[in-house]
């Protein structure tokens, strides 16, 4: 936290006054009369953005643990596919992956009658499962690489100590290896989660109605260009701020790594 004193040096006070003047000017001279009409839709879009972010981050992380483990200590027939997966995900644009899944799978599924008659079909006809799948795989690909480094970064002595106590392998993984690996990469995970937040507006291109899609709709309905975009940027900055604070709180909770 920056101390309050450093905020009140003269040039910062002048800058804050200028910024406040800018905000007042924006509030007075730009058009904001569309907000009440679109507020319910925007709330819905915000909720979609947030749940997609949370769900894909959690699922992606759950997938990244085995990916990292396979690359760190797995035999070659597990390590090679895991490395290939991470390379492909990290080497191609996310937009292309989303479109491949949505248009590709979306055009493939209706050809099979047994899929059309299955219970899952009402969901598979919507866009959000493809968005969740694409974002989950993307997060897993980037995080798998991070977790590989994290798992090999845990001190050997810790694992040897656990082994010499006769700890079962699962307990050792759950109580010693995973917590220490995660603790070491918490700052990286925070950064990656913000990157994931910045990837969510791409789902608007496959008709998922997130906060970005709402702003595009405002823009095309009312021909107001800048105001929705500025507000949208502000919303994303606020969410990024919440993520940063959340991870910082979590980092302070866990005992700090060896210095």
């Amino acid at each position: 936290m920056t101390s309050l004193k450093s905020l009140f040096v003269p040039h910062r006070i002048v800058m804050m006054i200028l910024f406040a003047a800018l905000v007042v000017w924006c509030a007075l001279s730009l058009r904001w009369d569309w907000i009440p009409q679109y507020a319910p839709l925007a709330a819905e879009g915000l909720w979609t953005t947030v749940w997609i972010l949370v769900v894909t981050s959690i699922l992606g992380f759950a997938l990244a643990v085995p990916l990292g483990l396979a690359q760190a200590i797995g035999p070659w027939y597990l390590a090679a596919p895991a490395r290939l997966f991470c390379t492909i995900i990290r080497g191609t644009p996310l937009l292309l992956q989303i479109w491949l899944l949505y248009y590709g799978l979306g055009s493939l599924f209706p050809q099979f009658p047994w899929i059309r008659s299955s219970e899952l079909w009402p969901y598979l006809r919507q866009a959000w499962p493809y968005a969740v799948l694409a974002l989950t795989l993307s997060y897993a690909g980037y995080e798998g690489e991070v977790m590989r480094g994290a798992f090999s970064g845990v001190a050997k002595g810790q694992l040897e100590a656990a082994k010499s106590f006769g700890m079962p392998r699962m307990t050792m993984f759950r109580c010693i290896w995973l917590p220490q690996a995660v603790r070491n990469v918490l700052p990286t995970l925070g950064g990656e989660t913000i990157l994931q937040l910045k990837a969510t507006p791409l789902v608007a291109t496959i008709t998922v109605l997130d906060i970005y899609a709402v702003s595009s709709r405002v823009r095309s309905d009312t021909f107001i260009v800048y105001e929705p975009l500025l507000l949208l940027a502000l919303v994303y900055m606020a969410i990024a701020g919440v993520i940063t604070l959340g991870f910082r709180w979590f980092e302070n909770k866990v005992p700090s790594a060896q210095r």
């Binding site: 507006p201 940027a233 994303y236």
Partner: peptide, 16 residues
């Protein structure tokens, strides 16, 4: 600011 806002939104803002 640039690193907290999605590239897609920045692209639209800077483009316009």
């Amino acid at each position: 600011v640039i690193r907290a806002v999605p590239e897609l939104v920045l692209i639209l803002i800077l483009y316009y």
